[in-house]
Design a protein around this nucleic acid. Sequence first.
RNA 1: GCCGAAGUGGCGGAACUGGUAGACGCGCUGGACUCAAAAUCCAGUGAUGGCGACAUCGUGUGGGUUCGAGUCCCACCUUCGGUACCA
Length: 1009
Amino acid sequence: MPSRIGQKPKAYSQQRTTIHKQGSSIMEYSPNEIEQKWRQWWKEHEVYKVSNDSAKPKYYVLDMFPYPSGSGLHVGHPLGYIGSDIVARYKRMKGYNVLHPMGYDAFGLPAEQYAIQTGVHPAVSTAQNIQRYREQLDNIGFSFDWSREVQTSDPKYYKWTQWIFLQLFQHYYDRSFDKAMPIESLVAIFEKEGNAKVDAATSQETVFTAEAWKSFSPKEKDDVLMNYRLAYRKVTYVWWCEALGTVLANDEVKDGVSERGGHPVERKPMLQWSLRITAYAERLLNGLREVDFSEAMKKMQGNWIGRSEGAQLFFDLSLPLAPSEVSLPPAPSKGGGVHVTPPPPSEGAGGRLEIFTTRPDTIFGATFMVLAPEHDLVKQITTDGQRQEIEDYLQYVNTRSERDRMAETKEVSGAFTGAYAINPFKGEKIPIWIAEYVLKDYGTGAIMAVPADDERDMRFAKKFGLPIVEIIDKSMYPNATIEDKLGKMINSDFLNGMEVLDAIEAIFQKIEAMGIGKRRVNYKLRDAIYSRQRYWGEPFPIEYDEEGVAHAMKAEDLPLELPELDDFKPASGGKAPLARAEDWVNLPNGWTRETDTMPGFAGSSWYFLRYMDANNDEEFASQKAINYWQDVDLYVGGTEHAVGHLMYSRFWHKFLYDKGLVPTSEPYKKLLNQGMIQGVIESIFMLKEKVDGNTKFVCANTVNKNELDKYVQIPVLVDFVKNYGANDSYLDAQAIQQFIEWRPEFKDAIFECGNGSYHRGVYTNRSEKKEGRLITYSEVGKMSKSKYNVINPDDVVGYYGADCFRMYEMFLGPIEQAKPWDTKGIDGVFKFLRKMWSLFFDKNEKFHVSDEPATKEELKALHTCIKKVTDDIERFSFNTCVSGFMICVNDLRSLNCDKRSVLEPLVKLVAPFAPHIAEELWHRLGHEESVCLADYPVFEESHLVEDVVTYPVSINGKKRDLIDLPAGLSVQELEKTALELDSVKKWLEGMTVRKVIVVPGRMINIVVG
RNA sequence: GCCGAAGUGGCGGAACUGGUAGACGCGCUGGACUCAAAAUCCAGUGAUGGCGACAUCGUGUGGGUUCGAGUCCCACCUUCGGUACCA
């Protein structure tokens, strides 16, 4: 018996014999023979085909569709799919019309990287991968309606992704209606009265009149409208790798260098498309109250949206800057906010700086300002004397990821601009610094720093010797932390003596009276960057005229298909690959197409709607279909999508709801998060610094933990690694050769193996040992294409059968819980299936069931199981269902049960979990129709009534005895019986009974003292 | 760093509402069957002490609430997921 399936796939075929050779006898359970047959039968009979026309109530069970990676489906994917398939099958048997579709999130980076490496067109590799996924999925016996399959990379599908994008482009968010409105109606308002009264989600800073609007050039008008559109263009930062000549994803950057090749990378500004998801921040937050997601999930999304109330405040910049040196306006407000026209700077001031703070009450303690290094004002306000220092700092920040910038706590960093702002209440000049801990896209990208009341500001002030002014006396709250809103104001002029909360209110009134700011709600949520400088994504249906004004393509001209390319590398100057397709980019009228493509989340933001009417060429889905299916009743997928996909698709859905195209404001009623099945991640250590011009790898056991920053960890395909998962896992000569073939960029690298080293296939040893081993580093983590540690379910299914695989994945533990993959224990599930199977055969190995009435014990076993399994499916506790089945089968075996009236319901009960064996037994029981369409067994309480209850008797909460008592005794009788027990009496000697606690049907506890 | 989750026998886990900790399965030990093995079946299996009845300890660590805590509260430790261009 293999106990390590997934570790040595090649060994299975030899091990496979034991179980299946025995399948020759009639009674032996032989999954390979049964399963193929029924999968074929289900397909021929279109058992899983779903109609949009049914009198039955609807139920929509959806899985998060997979990205078809080159490494194939791994054992982690099916965990959720099996769970949802069980629910789909269960609901079908309970009388629902169940929509249970599957498809592919088929655009993405890996296919493109593969294309760059091999020249294979992404469409070709994606099609192959999809075919492989399909075979793997089919192998597990899912009840998907494949006639509704979607592929996001199919022009028939992405036609509608483009169409929805154009809708976003052609709408703005009107806060007075609290919904998306057509951009034409905004233009009409501008023509009539300018933008002063428009309350919209916008990045527009300036106010203009109708006359001014009319006088704008088309380009100027376009620029203004861009500040309102839900899909708009703005400058955002990307990872740029000069050596590779391309933009990199966060995933491709590791430890400040490119994962491929270890080249330096930096942040680079680029004009890109964004989606104004911030317009929906409040509704996305409120919508969480309506949906049945886990509290953790709702919390995560809520925190991601990050609503905070505070003040938008303007600080005057101090001279000596000549006013002309500073051009206004300053940093744009965030899209989520109502635009506020900045007040003119005070007489003699050098311009204004806009900040957001949740603690305006602490303004008397503001001793310096901090701008995000990317803040527009930085270049303008930096004095000549400080310019070099600022430049140096900007260069450093350019190499830092946002995560690093936020996570850095050990050491704060920053640089002084030389400029000053004026504290509007104290009138004193305070220095303006830049620091990486302030992010450009959060708030206004600028803060007033109050070291006395903020941990990070405090560290900053201490490091750079900036003044600290105490403003809150917390002495009466000894347990309060520095950032709690507790204490009395001091050193704060008119706020002195007030409690913090009162001071906040008082300062708001003052700020508004002085006209230097406003109350504002700020969201941490940022607009979603929607451009990718890639080939393998949806092309933007956007054309630019000679002026650079963006024009939407006509809906009837969609889809705009990806042009053929044979080289997928970025075009010169770091332009997206599509720029290579010159005939496609340059239009006859002199206009040009957008060459960026859409991101992965585009296609996945609405696919659940397409399944409702997947083959519709006229609409993204017909209103009839949408109104029938409404929304997703159960959505199953991993928590890793908590804030990405789920947030974006909820946003798109709300937009479509505003347009009246969907009847529900939330797409997913209930969300079930399956835990990740983890794999072992194997990696090797590469020195960041080249040794004599060579890339060098060293053994993991020689790496000093304190020097990790000198290395880059390069993941290795687990198949190459010997002893994988163990402490002494390693690559031998052959494996190093495999590794080099797999990652040719390392073909000239040196592999230092302790006793010798490999270089270009040659091993030089320094000791007696013949073979060098490069020790790899093993850790538990995500099983994913990017970690190269994928285990294929086919191997397990081939050996044990799909039913066993399905039940085993469920039996592993709660579906929500993460667990590393291993196959210890799968034999137990196989034995269970065999035991269940044998219930249907007599000692002559003939199929046999009796029509005799069932005994009380048999019915009790069955109905205990019905209750357990039904209850547990309803609460998605699939692992306990499996043990419920095991208990039932064990009981029925010891009762020698062969009764049809017991075994037939058992077959139906087990059908959602193990459909193949159930179908086989069902047909052997004489049925013609599929067991999938049978009625689910009904639980009858009467079979479970007990006349004896076993009570634990405790003394002071410690169990001392068990007694069997007739059911239905009163509390007094129970108490009396318990006190008279010999086993109890010995504990009462010399003690007084203080109290007796009796919970009828549960327990008895005697308190003595 | 921040946000979220999880820590229970040798292992995966059960205990749903604060009420018998360890269901079910794996593994292990002993036995039956067998020339032998596999498969199957039967019995045992948290730790410690005891011939035994039994006793003590025991759900990551340290406190607390309660007649009673794996479950509730406080503080911490470890691991995993996300952290805005992997999907």
